[in-house]
Design a protein around this nucleic acid. Sequence first.
RNA 1: GGCCCGUUGGUCAAGCGGUCAAGACGCUAGCCUCUCACGCUGGAAACAUGGGUUCGAUUCCCGUACGGGUCACCA
Length: 561
Amino acid sequence: MDYNKLSELLFPHITQTPAEIEAQFPPRQLPEGAKVTRFAPSPTGFVHFGGLFPTTVAERLAHQSGGVLYLRIEDTDAKREVAGAAEALIRTLSVYGVNFDEGAILGEDGKICDKGAYGPYKQSLRGPIYQAFAKQLVREGKAYPCFTTEEELEELHQINKKEEIKNTDWEAEAAKRKAEMLARRSFTMEEVEAHLAAGDPFVLRILADGDPEKKTKFTDLVKGNMEIPENDEDFVLLKSDGIPTYHFAHAVDDHLMGTTHVIRGEEWLPSLAKHLQLFRYLGFKTPKYMHIAQIMRLDESGNKKKLSKRDMGANMDDYTGMGYCPEAVCEYVMTLLNSNYEEWRMQNPDKSYRDFPFHIKKMSVSGCLFDFNKLNDVSKNVISRMDAKTVTERVTEWAKEFDPAFGAALAKDPAFAEQIFAIGRGGKKPRKDLATWADAKPYMGFFYDEFFTVTEDFGEQYDRGDIKTVLSEFLASYDPADDMNAWFEKVKAIGAALGYTPDMKAYKADPSAYRGNVADVSMFLRLAVTGKKNAPDLYTVMQILGKEKVAQRIERMIEQI
RNA sequence: GGCCCGUUGGUCAAGCGGUCAAGACGCUAGCCUCUCACGCUGGAAACAUGGGUUCGAUUCCCGUACGGGUCACCA
């Protein structure tokens, strides 16, 4: 077979040689040890948690080493492409601290545009580049055309679809496929010419030289040493529309764009043999690989499953709606990514996660379960470190979009809101009431008349008369000018007169000796003023509310009781 | 089913041949305290399993089980 002739037949329009293309993609001039990584999404949907994970690694590794993080859009499957997805992806990533130095980035007009010398960064625009390398492979007898159509193939393999995969006789199937492959490999120049003359579409397949009985030793930066069987499958390089498959595009692009570390989910591990083979065929140096364990979730029957699109907590945009702040999500991602991150955080509570020395060695080999409990805890800590002004602004901003009535109330008087969020904030042991912005309303909504409702009951054990007396006496003596101590002394005195002792120790020693204690008295007041049995420090709450509102609420309670 | 990867408390995890097997979340007892939150002191809770190697295995090797991934002109 005259492979040179074959390559001209197949790609008559390609005149540029791989060497000429290589010249357009010179090696990067970067300091020693600088890593070049990338995020290479297919624009088919939103960013999900499982995707943010490896991307954060890529971002940290690149920027921590003084390298480059670039974005390449893998839009090689026109059928699945979703309009606007790429732009949305970039925006979401940016929210979570992933910003690109190069690649397909968002321009001023909100549209995607290229930045950098290694473009175009949209694979659909790189057809001739791939085809030049494809042509070379054909010339070298390492790839060949296949005129079997997609429909014919589908008919041949009725078991392609997932459900049928389990119940297949795989031995017979393998033999069948092997035979098919051998048949595909034998063709004559005349047949090719006839097909082309007839305008038949074809795919370009690799001529696999691997022996699956033989293993290649390989070291993954995360997974460590492993042995993988050589590839003997003539997989598709170019689809019938001339666009490459992932495998081929990966090899060509990551080589030309100078990627040093390919960071991706471990679902790619099984196709690694193909990629290694391709790099060898093309004469490219292989990049380093990091296959990251998947995030899992629990399914109905209690088994772990890869966290996928529809799952709770998958779509990053959902976190916004739930009221999680991006810093908290990043913080959680970091705790999952590096096992010593939490320890570092305890020692460096005020630093940015970007100051953390990220180590590949500290990454987990196995997949972990997504845990909202942990996220909430991390988030509470993150928010507890913010100042009142920041919290006020961010709650307001969130509420304006997701709880407009609440948002409007907050926005009406930011200084008032800030006083509320300042309660218990700023000290060594700050309150941790908020895991999400959505927690704000149940926590402090009672400060606003429109959200104030009495949601709890005094309980049957208390004498209504006592409660009434406490409320009216307090009202009569309440002076906002009192300091906390004076205020509390008054409360104690009111209770004591009714047999509610201010001495908690004495009460605990012998509860039957008293009608109650000062905690009960406080509870009467708290319920009247906040509508709840649990609230931040009552004295402070009253100070912020002001005498008028305090009086109004207590009076109302006296009437209702 | 083939191939690949994995398996330390409910979850996330330290651990690299000799430890009473860290820590965090969650749960829980108590302390602090006007409630809550915070904080503090405790508690329950784990090396999947069978064989080796070794004076000694959670740590090394092999098998088994279980879990995950993958087997497209999708990425």
